[in-house]
Design a protein around this nucleic acid. Structure first.
Lengths: 247, 247
DNA sequence: CTGGAATAACGGTCAGACCATTAGCCGTAT
DNA sequence: ATACGGCTAATGGTCTGACCGTTATTCCAG
C-alpha cells in the first residue's frame, strides 16, 4: 500500500504516472457521480460529444465507457436517444463480479460460508428489532412458496437464497441487504450441486426457515441466532473441504 | 438468472441476442479462465494476434480486454514482452469495486457504519479463537506505531483502518479479510473529515485498540465484543445523519 | 386517426496508421 | 572481461475517418 519514497534521501521525484488517457476519463466521470453531479438515470453526452469535450478520440472515450460499464456505474443503450446512463441498481452486477472473483481467487466455499454466517447471524439483532408486520408476512409467504415447490419437487437454491435475502431486508439497512445479496451469488455457484447431494435439505431447510420467522416475530434474538446457527452450520458441513473452483 | 422462454407457446425463437462482439470475446476468455485452461500468470496472445484468431478488429479486442481488466481478471503490461496476463491477486480490486459500488449507491455513512459493525463484531469469536502469538504481536506493533504517530500529531484514519484490517486477519479467513478491507475504503471517504471534528478520537481510539488486543490475548470473547462495540458506537455517533456523498 | 415509411441520432465495428514504452541484444570504451 | 549506452523489435495506447445496425421521432399517405 504505502510505498513511500525511501530512495536516495530526498522525496522529491514524485512517481511519474503515465496513466492511460481513458483511465483519466474514467476517474473523472467516477468523481462526477461520486459528487452527485451525475445522478442515477442521468444521461451522459454522446460519444462524439464527449470526444470533443475531452479532446480525445472516440476510441478512447469508448474504452472509458467500457470500463465504467463493467464497473456497473453506467448502462449503455443503443439507437436514437441512446447513450450512457448512470445506473445505480448495481446489486446484481456487484454480485456477478463477486462471483467471478471468488471463483478465481483462492477463496474456498468454506471461507465464503463462514463469512456469510458472520453476516447473517450478526444482522439478526437488527432484524429482530426492526422487522415489521409486513416483513414477517412477506417471509411467511416465501416459506409457503418454498413448501409448495418442495411438494412439486421443484425446490431450488434460489428459493432458499431469496428467503435469506428477505431476512436481510428486515434489517432495514440497504448496505446489509446488498451484502447478503452479493454473497448469495457465489454461494449458488457451489451449492447448486450440494443440493443434489442432500435432497432432504430442502425440507429441513424450510422447517428451519419457519422456526426463524417465529423467533423474529417473538422478538427473541437468542432463539433466532440459535436457529440460524444450526441452519448455516449444516450448509457449512456440506461445502467443507470443497475445492475452490466447482464447475 | 433463468429467463426461460415462456412466450407464445413454442420455445423456438431463441431470444435474439445482439450481444456486442466484444462481450462474446469477454465471455469466451472468462470461460477459459474458469475452466482452468488459462491460469494465474499466463499470458494471452498479443492484441494483434487475438484480432486474427477471433477475426475481429483490434478495437473490439481492446474493448474486451478493458472489460476483463476492469473485472480484475487480467492485468495489462506495456512494452516488449508485455500483454495481458491472467491475474488472481484480485483482493484489492475486489475491494475497490465493492468500495465504488458502496460509495455510489445511495448508502449513507450510517448504513455503512452499521454494516461494518455487524462484520467487525461478528468476526470476533473467530479472531479470539484463532489469533496466534504472531498475530497479537503484530497488532501490538500497530498500536505502538499509532501512538508514535499521535505524539507526532500525525495520526491518520489509515492507521486506524490498518489496525482493523489487522484484527480481521486474525480470523484466518481471506474472505473475511477482504470484506473488512473493502469496507474501510468507503469509511475513509467520510471519516477523513470526522477526524478533524474530533481530534481527540485518535487517543481514545488507540486506547480502545489496546484494550481489544488485551481481550483477544486473554481469549475473552465477551470483553472483546464489548470493547469493539463501544469503539464502533462512537464512530457511529460521528457519522450519524451525514449525507450520502461527502466530498 | 392510424399505420408505415423516411429520417436523424447514436452506439458498434472496421481498417490502417503512428507514437510511447519496454526487454533484450549488441557494440564500444574502459 | 566488464560495464555502460544506444539500437531494435515487440507490444500496448491513441488517432482518424469511415460504414453499418438499431432506435425514437417525424411526417406523409390512406
Amino acid at each position: 500500500m504505502s510505498d513511500a519514497a525511501a530512495d536516495t534521501g530526498a522525496d522529491l521525484f514524485k512517481r511519474v504516472s503515465v496513466d492511460r488517457v481513458s483511465q483519466v476519463i474514467v476517474d473523472q466521470i467516477k468523481l462526477l457521480v461520486r459528487e452527485g453531479k451525475l445522478s442515477n438515470g442521468d444521461r451522459l453526452p454522446s460519444e462524439r460529444d464527449l470526444c470533443q469535450r475531452f479532446g480525445v478520440s472516440r476510441v478512447t472515450v469508448r474504452e472509458a465507457l467500457r470500463v465504467l460499464e463493467a464497473s456497473g456505474l453506467i448502462e449503455i443503450r443503443v439507437g436514437a436517444r441512446g447513450g450512457a446512463f448512470v445506473s445505480s441498481p448495481t446489486r446484481e452486477r456487484l454480485g456477478q463480479g463477486l462471483a467471478d472473483l471468488i471463483t478465481l481467487s483462492s477463496l474456498t466455499p468454506a471461507h465464503i460460508t463462514e463469512a456469510r454466517s458472520v453476516i447473517e447471524i450478526g444482522i439478526l439483532p437488527f432484524v429482530v428489532e426492526r422487522a415489521t408486520g409486513d416483513d414477517i408476512a412477506s417471509l411467511r409467504r416465501m416459506i409457503e412458496e418454498g413448501q409448495e415447490a418442495l411438494d412439486r419437487n421443484a425446490y431450488t437454491m434460489n428459493i432458499s437464497a431469496a428467503f435469506h435475502v428477505g431476512v436481510s431486508v428486515c434489517a432495514h439497512n440497504p448496505a446489509i441487504e446488498t451484502l447478503v445479496q452479493s454473497f448469495h451469488g457465489p454461494m449458488l455457484l457451489s451449492l447448486r450441486q450440494a443440493q443434489l447431494v442432500a435432497p432432504a435439505m430442502g425440507r429441513r431447510g424450510t422447517d428451519e426457515h419457519a422456526a426463524l420467522v417465529d423467533a423474529i416475530e417473538a422478538r427473541d434474538t437468542e432463539a433466532a441466532i440459535a436457529v440460524m446457527t444450526t441452519h448455516l452450520d449444516r450448509t457449512a458441513g456440506l461445502v467443507r473441504d470443497m475445492p475452490p473452483a466447482a464447475p
